[in-house]
Amino acid sequence: MEDQIAVKIDDLTVAYDYKPVLWDIDLAIPEGVLMAIVGPNGAGKSTLIKAILDILKPIAGSVEIYGKPYKKNRALVAYVPQKGSVDWDFPTTALDVVMMGTYGSLGWIKRPGQKEKKAALEALEKVGMLSFKSRQISQLSGGQQQRIFLARALVQNASIYFMDEPFQGVDATTEKAIINILKELRKAGKTVVVVHHDLQTVPEYFDWVTFLNVKKIATGPVKDIFNDDNLTKTYGINYKVAITQ
């Protein structure tokens, strides 16, 4: 199962001004892994995802999704942006936001119909938000907003899921609910890539990990490479975590 490469990144370099945010990244993400991207603030974790998804133009390098450029294979990819990247006072409902996940497959001009609505309701149910479907999104709590974003990605019905800090500012219940859904996705053979901050939970949640700090430090199975050596190399301080598996 881990033979097939879902995402292949070669020599990727991204810079905002003069300083590179990502420097010469080579990365191959095997199909079917639940992978954490870890690294300190400013390590370029979000930038890596944005560059993969073609939101940012890299200075150099290439990204392939199942052997093709992102543009050709975007239907295979779903994206959960950081919750704080949008204005939650926007006049719309939870169901409507989840429906946005169907817009990509609909293409230009075509309106979502019953089929799309059904898919959105199913996704809402899966994240436990069905009873909130008509709620104005500003009246949702942070954790509920995050679940709505997750539901929107589920509706995209993709093979690869990119999530930018889905656990940020959510409570323990929501975190558990989200990780269970991610594990289900992996069980269904999907590839899930998550920008993650809580090092303590890496061994429990993920089976694959990439250490990033502008350069790629290491990537591989959590059980092989999630160790103090790589943590120290990434975070620059002598890092000790008790890894109990």
Binding site: K50, L53, D54, I55, R74, V77, Y79, P81, S85, V86, D87, F90, T92, V97, M100, Y103, G104, L106, W108, I109, R111, P112, R152, Q156
Partner: peptide, 16 residues
């Protein structure tokens, strides 16, 4: 639909 999603979430709009 395109304008609505652009207003709400431009990055996501681009990715799809």
């Amino acid at each position: 639909k395109e304008l609505k999603i652009l207003l709400f979430d431009p990055d996501f709009t681009k990715t799809i």
